[in-house]
Amino acid sequence: MKNDLRARNHPSWWAFLVHRLSGLALSLFLPFHFWALGQAFQGEARLDTLLRWTEQPLVKFAEVLLIVLLAAHLSGGLRLLALEFLPWRGWQKSLLAWAAGLALAAGLAFALAL
């Protein structure tokens, strides 16, 4: 017998899923990030064209999403480190809330500073 989503429907499993998916998405983005930086080697004009392209609203929105993913992956990782390396104190749910809060706050801060 195999489990379905009903068995997985608890906060820590959703945290795992967010951590895994954000990690995958970030690693997919990374080559593009390096490619974009690499444009600087082709001269200032090339890079400027690219930077102007990123000014579009849709790209901006994607950037906020990226920040949230990055913050979620970071805070999720810190949560795991705290769970595994610090003395256990029944704080699984509070750690999770902190991690989620941190990720959203980072996204919000970035969106507002735009």
Binding site: H10, S12, L83, F85, W88
Partner: peptide, 20 residues
């Protein structure tokens, strides 16, 4: 560290804690 075991254990044991 999915914590499913700790979530479901009827004796409220937290195997995740032991594994850590």
């Amino acid at each position: 560290t999915h914590l499913a075991c700790s979530e479901r254990c009827p004796k409220k044991i937290e195997p995740t804690r032991s594994i850590a």
